[in-house]
């Protein structure tokens, strides 16, 4: 989906979500109610090169992100199987990875970071949390690099979703994400 446009209405964002405006309008562009975001560098962008990114511009980046997702996914999955008492907390991570991967393509096979036998729950959660933190950083870094603005937005949102869900692992797993 690298060049999938992210169509969001500014009127929706600023009007509905910010509970409306009394006495004035925040609709900054009266020419359209529902603009579709142009990719960075595309027409209308004062900062770009003037060329709309080709899908292949981000192919390597997407492959790299899918690899990072696969490692985190495998880590959550294997640890959930080995520690059934933690499965309730780790399964949502698996589901999030799968959701994110489906947006980009398909998860490649990967090896995960598996907790040693005998590790207590806190150590397992900390290990999974570190894997999630690495994924969060990878997603945020990829958002900075993407040629497509729409892809960048999606990757930033994925990083944010990963950061949010990581907090459910508890305090031992919440260090080391993006600053």
């Amino acid at each position: 989906m690298p060049n999938r446009p992210a169509a969001v209405s500014r009127r929706l964002v600023l009007g509905a979500s910010l509970l409306g405006v009394a006495g004035c309008s925040l609709d900054l562009d009266p020419t359209t109610d529902d603009p579709t975001i142009a990719p960075s560098g595309g027409p209308g962008s004062p900062v770009g090169t003037g060329a709309v990114p080709e899908p292949d511009d981000d192919a390597d980046l997407v492959a790299s992100v899918l690899g990072a997702l696969a490692v985190a996914h495998r880590t959550a999955r294997v640890n959930a199987r080995r520690h059934p008492d933690l499965a309730r907390r780790l399964r949502p991570l698996e589901r999030l990875h799968a959701t994110h991967a489906a947006e980009l393509g398909r998860l490649p096979s990967a090896s995960g970071v598996v907790a040693d036998a005998g590790e207590d729950d806190a150590a397992v959660l900390a290990r999974v949390g570190r894997a999630e933190a690495r994924l969060e950083r990878s997603l945020a870094d990829a958002a900075l690099e993407a040629a497509s603005g729409a892809l960048a937005q999606t990757l930033a949102a994925m990083a944010a979703g990963t950061a949010q869900l990581r907090t459910t692992l508890g305090p031992s797993a919440t260090a080391g994400g993006t600053p």
């Binding site: 900062v47 958002a143 040629a147 960048a152 993006t178």
Partner: peptide
């Protein structure tokens, strides 16, 4: 998110930080 989508890569860091 709009900000991220409409910034060039070199301008994007504060926008990504804001999303997070």
């Amino acid at each position: 998110g709009f900000w991220v989508a409409n910034a060039a890569p070199a301008q994007r860091r504060p926008a990504v930080a804001a999303v997070l």
